[in-house]
Computed example of a mutant assay.
Amino acid sequence: MIFKNLQLNIDVEDDFFNTLYPLRIKKLSEFHWTPVEVAKLAADYLVAKPNCKVLDIGSGAGKFCLIGAASTKGHFYGVEQREGLVKLSQRIAKTHNLNNVEFFHSNITEIAFSDYDAFYFYNPFYENLDNSLLIDNKIVIDEKLYFTYSEYVENQLKKTPVGTLLVTYWSMGVDNIEGFDLEFTAYNGKLNFLEKKF
């Protein structure tokens, strides 16, 4: 019902979508997973043409990718270093026959951005700076990693071709990558829509 509604462009409440998740994952939603309305806006912008390949940088529980796959004609790819979250995302996609979404258990530094057309970035490295809202204790948390990962993402995005689309959510700093211009913004500047211009 959730994904059918998304396919038919019927509004889905965040609490309703989160019923897909176990309680522990559901409780993390407010601080770690993209709200449904935000995910739909971002996915609509990023899928500029059918079969567009969208990478979610740090896909967590897969919420953005699952919503994007159900509500657009794009192909969504989530990279996540927590294996348990990858398996959970894969299970939800398989159960609901979402064939245009894939999840990878990997570190972002092992991903070549040249394989994708558009990118979604919801501050995936922030745990390394503020450990008061950790998802779990399954990965190494270190302030240096925040800067290592951020620098890798910035360098990869700089190499993307003109016309590449990027959406950032709660991600100060990533909005200022050389070559990307802000097209428009929403949610008081928290959600930003950018395009590579040079």
Rank of each mutant, 00 (worst) to 15 (best):
73 K>G: 06
73 K>W: 00
74 G>V: 00
74 G>H: 02
75 H>G: 10
76 F>I: 05
76 F>D: 01
76 F>W: 01
76 F>R: 00
77 Y>S: 05
79 V>F: 04
79 V>P: 00
80 E>W: 02
80 E>I: 04
81 Q>C: 11
82 R>T: 13
82 R>L: 13
83 E>F: 11
83 E>A: 12
84 G>W: 02
84 G>R: 12
85 L>A: 05
85 L>C: 12
85 L>T: 00
85 L>K: 05
88 L>E: 08
88 L>H: 01
88 L>Q: 07
91 R>M: 13
91 R>S: 13
92 I>C: 09
92 I>L: 10
92 I>D: 02
93 A>I: 07
93 A>L: 01
94 K>S: 09
95 T>D: 15
96 H>F: 15
98 L>S: 01
98 L>A: 04
99 N>H: 12
99 N>A: 10
99 N>W: 03
99 N>E: 14
100 N>T: 08
100 N>L: 05
100 N>R: 02
101 V>H: 01
102 E>H: 06
102 E>F: 03
102 E>D: 13
103 F>L: 09
104 F>R: 10
105 H>K: 04
106 S>K: 14
107 N>H: 08
107 N>T: 09
107 N>F: 03
107 N>P: 03
108 I>F: 01
108 I>R: 03
109 T>W: 02
111 I>L: 06
112 A>S: 15
112 A>G: 13
113 F>M: 01
114 S>F: 06
115 D>P: 02
115 D>W: 03
115 D>F: 03
116 Y>A: 00
116 Y>G: 05
117 D>T: 07
118 A>D: 02
118 A>S: 13
119 F>Y: 08
119 F>T: 07
119 F>P: 00
120 Y>E: 12
122 Y>T: 02
122 Y>G: 09
122 Y>Q: 15
122 Y>S: 14
123 N>P: 11
123 N>I: 09
125 F>D: 00
125 F>Y: 08
125 F>A: 11
127 E>M: 09
127 E>A: 14
127 E>H: 10
129 L>A: 12
130 D>I: 07
130 D>S: 14
130 D>Y: 11
131 N>F: 13
131 N>Y: 03
131 N>L: 15
131 N>Q: 15
132 S>I: 06
132 S>H: 11
133 L>G: 11
134 L>T: 12
135 I>Y: 00
137 N>A: 06
138 K>E: 14
138 K>L: 15
138 K>V: 11
138 K>D: 15
139 I>R: 04
139 I>K: 01
140 V>M: 12
140 V>G: 05
140 V>F: 10
142 D>N: 15
144 K>P: 07
144 K>H: 10
145 L>I: 05
146 Y>T: 09
146 Y>H: 14
146 Y>N: 10
146 Y>I: 10
148 T>A: 09
149 Y>F: 15
149 Y>P: 10
150 S>V: 09
150 S>L: 04
150 S>Q: 07
151 E>K: 14
